[in-house]
Design a protein around this nucleic acid. Structure first.
Length: 300
DNA sequence: GCCCTACCTCTAAC
DNA sequence: AGTTAGAGGTAGG
């Protein structure tokens, strides 16, 4: 038996951090929960994370943990209360905030985030997770996890995926998204578009550049801008958010595309990106559990 | 520009 | 238990 890997741990102060809402609701696809403890891999490091009094405990098997990157990923220092307080003062946002108190945005690795959302089109979250897990298992590097946990793998870089055939990607179950992912990986591996440069651009230019990648349209570009680059102007409009705006703000009369986009861009400022996440979860809950269901019982 | 459809595969709902 | 619609869209007509 190999010796149990040593772990390093660190406590972070963080007021209102709802791990379930943050890690399990479709902005990231690699987190697993067991007894209120979450495990995942970020920046090549296996992480275990759980709520503690007055904060968050992070443990990792990495031999020299990159705490800065870990803290950056979780955005521990973000003042979520003042962000949600600046939301529009209407009944829907008020309900969304109370149902999902402690929901945070993450700051993910741009490549993994981009690849994940290329795979997300017309897919249920469950299946997206499945595909991403397969990619890591088959083409990532194994890294140590703790006993009792599944083997852990890094998410392979663009150079690795660029070398795979379309068929090898299709074998992972991604269907017609395979050529998109392959081409995007090749574009990055060839240095034609730099992901770190995109982060330095203002929102409109960054969005336009992201849309040059195969399989990336306005929605996926906005997801990456919000979940990886932290651009608050990004407001991904998917079927759920569109449904939410139609139902809650236009009384069910569908506004045309321009009206809806304009509303999305202006009404929720200045924290539109955060507002989008709360709205997304709120409308999904309304549809899956019924409008009566009001369960704010998240662990804070 | 705007609308339409094809696209893979799997899950959830009959 | 088998069948089918629909799923955090995008590209190309």
């Amino acid at each position: 038996m190999p010796p149990e890997p040593r772990t390093r741990s660190k406590h972070f102060e963080a007021k209102f951090y709802n791990l379930r809402a943050t890690l399990d609701c479709g902005q990231a696809f690699r987190w697993l929960e067991h007894n209120d403890t979450w495990t995942g891999v970020i920046h090549g490091q296996w992480i275990q994370i759980s709520n503690r009094q007055s904060g968050i405990l992070v443990e990792t098997t990495a031999s020299s943990p990159k705490w800065d990157l870990i803290a950056g990923y979780f955005r521990f220092t973000e003042d979520i209360e003042s962000i949600t307080k600046a939301f529009p003062d209407d009944e829907h946002m008020t309900r969304a905030v109370s149902a999902y108190r402690g929901l945070r945005l993450l700051r993910q690795d741009p490549w993994e985030c981009l690849a994940s959302f290329i795979l997300s089109s017309t897919k249920q979250i469950r299946h997206i997770r499945q595909i991403i897990s397969k990619i890591a298992k088959h083409h990532g590097e194994e890294i140590p996890s703790l006993p009792g946990h599944d083997p852990a793998f890094t998410f392979p870089g663009p150079e690795t995926l660029a070398k795979l055939s379309e068929n090898a990607l299709r074998e992972l179950g991604m269907g017609y998204r395979a050529p998109y992912l392959r081409q995007t990986a090749q574009t990055i591996a060839a240095g034609k578009i730099s992901l770190s440069e995109i982060g330095k651009l203002p929102y409109p230019k960054a969005k336009a550049l992201l849309q040059q990648f195969a399989g990336v349209g306005p929605k996926i570009a906005d997801c990456v801008l919000l979940f990886a680059y932290g651009k608050q102007q990004a407001f991904p409009i998917d079927v759920w958010v569109k449904r939410a705006i139609n139902e809650l703000y236009f009384a069910g009369q569908k506004p045309n595309k321009g009206t809806l986009e304009n509303f999305a861009q202006t009404y929720f400022q200045p924290n539109s990106g955060y507002a989008q996440q709360y709205l997304f979860h709120y409308i999904r809950m309304m549809h899956t559990k019924g409008p009566q269901s009001n369960s704010p019982s998240s662990n804070l």
